[in-house]
Design a binder for these strands. Structure first.
Lengths: 143, 143
DNA sequence: ACTTAACTTAAAGTTAACTTTAACTTATAT
DNA sequence: ATATAAGTTAAAGTTAACTTTAAGTTAAGT
């Protein structure tokens, strides 16, 4: 089975021009051409899925390219690639932890506005949290 | 207790120039001035913590400013702000779910390289996953 | 008192990641 | 057959979010 650039772009929720840009940056190694046109094959999706993840965690294009270059060098770079993957895995874990903290803040705000709307004014909830001068405070009121 | 722009910048892990930029964009309402200098008070940290979260989930500055403007209008905008918070909460939840999928991919890659390094070559693991032409596939090998 | 560090603004500069344009070729549908 | 849609490249343009610069004022340390 083969796929056009538009079909792949739709699957990845990006513009075809974005895929061409990725290609020009060296992020789409080994994609076949037929009459000059890119033809994506099943084997390409293996990498596209990883690329998709790397993009989602905001890994810079330069770093992704570095990974691709290592992969192209073959087995001699296995350890280096492993190290990069471990580093990125830790970054995802950190990002998830960070977002969970943000979620708490938004859940607090949800509660805050629920109470304020009930009362018709913010004054009722304005001083529920003791605001110490740090950004690390965790104050989720129990329902 | 009061804090200089540098002190607040350090707490938020940003440059003072970034805070000045946020201020110029209307993201730091109600910050006092003494001889022209910004002086941050305890009350400001309440908002800084929320701002911090909004930045972390990549909420665009324009949207954050819209929220600030609503807050400045007072109680008549409670419902609108509640709706915005709910929307952002859903965005965080989606982002967390997305990152968890990425984590699986990196965990698979970790396993992949562990096996490849053991064998000295990628050939051993290259075709472990059946790669269907979708980016939604989930293939985590059980240890 | 004097030096150094930190603060100020307005405006210009930077960066990453696309996105658009122009000029062209190839494929698909009627 | 012919129009329309989709593909191509290289190069220029865009956007968001800072970041730096320049020129100045204010505060803090010795």
């Amino acid at each position: 089975m083969t796929y056009s650039i538009k079909e792949v772009a739709d699957m990845m929720n990006v513009e075809p021009s974005t895929l061409r840009y990725y290609d020009s940056m060296g992020l789409l190694p080994g994609v076949k051409r037929v009459n000059g046109r890119r033809v994506f094959e099943d084997k390409d999706f293996k990498w596209l899925r990883v690329l998709n993840c790397m993009k989602k965690i905001n890994m810079p294009i330069d770093k992704i390219r570095a990974y691709v270059k290592l992969a192209e060098k073959g087995d001699s770079t296995l350890q280096e690639r492993f190290d990069m993957i471990l580093e990125q895995k830790q970054i995802v874990l950190d990002q998830i932890a960070e977002l969970k903290d943000c979620l708490k803040e938004f859940e607090y705000k949800e509660w805050y506005y629920t109470e304020a709307i009930k009362a018709g004014t913010e004054k009722v909830v304005e001083n529920v949290t003791t605001c110490s001068p740090t950004l690390e405070v965790d104050t989720i009121p129990k329902k």
